[in-house]
Write a protein that binds this DNA or RNA. Structure first.
Lengths: 205, 205
DNA sequence: CGCGACGTTGATTTGCCTCAACGATTGTGG
DNA sequence: CCACAATCGTTGAGGCAAATCAACGTCGCG
């Protein structure tokens, strides 16, 4: 019985990490041996809705690959409100990289918006992995290069579009995602109030 | 006289690339042999004020390391105005990475705000260099990781601060930079009009 | 069932924009 | 070296997009 459980767990870990391996192999080569080396250094985690990967004051403990689900990164503003600065969904990495790299306390929260599963790569493990599998540096170079350009594009839209235009642009870009998060979170992310979003939506069904 | 000029030029290339070597060595090891390999694959370029590294419609020809000077990246909006989405100064890399990676036409401009000098790393050369000097992947991984977090922070300020607060925050963060660019460019970058900036400044000397 | 979280709607306010006219400074050609 | 234009910054009047504040409806859940 004990053996069986162990076997199931082992299988489940390998299986649950398939999306990550697939994502890595979109950008760099990774042999099966190298993949199992990787698997030894990461772990899989189920995160309940509203649970935190990170809370302000803590050091960001891992670099998180979202296997499935949805997270929001936010921080508390000067007067008590929460400001969402980004969402993360399936096949995205999320972390407070300033806190993670320097192992210093963060000022942010990373919270599950729905029940989710992630792969955790801790700082120590990641450092070792970068030595053993240098192609991971290339992989993350590409990941961050794209994340950087995505944020620049986002800034462009924030500067040029009205609130209403931003909402419809986002809606067109991620039509299914809009259903997944409460409207007040979407409003915060897009940079306006929930009341405003409600009025925009009232205009067109 | 001609010889002398040539000699000066050769010396000047090695010398002018010192800031780049120094920047790389802040993050990854690079032997002298490796450095000269690098030097063979890049070139140095003086850029006059108002000259372009990239214009909309062109493919972004290089990844540019700014040795000294100042650049702005902008694009034309639907209503004929220019929207600045970022500045680049000494020791920053700048490029339209979407255009650069895919070698497809850009929709952006990269223009010198003042007389500047850059080091150009062309796509082909960069690809070869990444093979020869794999630590450059790590170097750029770090560069992009930091650039990404910087943009996330910038988004946070755009979402949370009023126009006046954004100006003073930027002013405090880069006190000398504010002097270097015309106010209308700063206004565009910070997301308000030149008139508004003028009125903000009028309030406090 | 009743409470708290979320969304809606309307009245009012405000931060910033638009438009227009006017200085100041720079650069360029005669 | 001056005249003149072009560029950049300033100031004010009026307008609009979105925020704020408040009241109310609705749904899911302990």
């Amino acid at each position: 019985m004990k053996n069986k459980t162990t076997t199931i767990k082992a299988v489940s870990k390998a299986e649950s990490c398939v999306p990550l391996l697939h994502h890595i192999r979109r950008y760099v080569p990774l042999s099966d041996d190298e993949a199992s080396l990787l698997l030894d250094s990461i772990h899989f985690k189920i995160v309940n809705s509203k649970a935190f990967l990170l809370q302000a004051g803590q050091v960001c403990g891992g670099n998180y690959f979202i296997v499935n689900g949805c997270f929001r990164m936010y921080l508390n503003t000067d007067y008590g409100t929460e400001q969402i600065i980004q969402f993360g969904i399936d096949n995205w990495w999320i972390a407070d990289y300033t806190s993670f790299e320097q192992q210093r306390p963060s000022d942010r929260f990373i919270q599950a918006v729905e029940k989710s599963s992630v792969i955790v790569m801790e700082k120590k493990e990641q450092d070792v992995l970068f030595q053993k599998l240098p192609q991971l540096e290339r992989y993350f170079r590409i990941v961050f290069q794209r994340a950087y350009t995505a944020q620049l594009n986002r800034i462009h839209f924030m500067l040029n579009l009205s609130g209403e235009e931003r909402y419809y642009h986002f809606h067109n870009s991620f039509p299914d995602f809009v259903q997944r998060v409460p409207q007040y979170m979407l409003a915060s992310y897009l940079g306006f109030t929930p009341e405003f979003l409600s009025k925009v939506r009232a205009k067109r069904g």
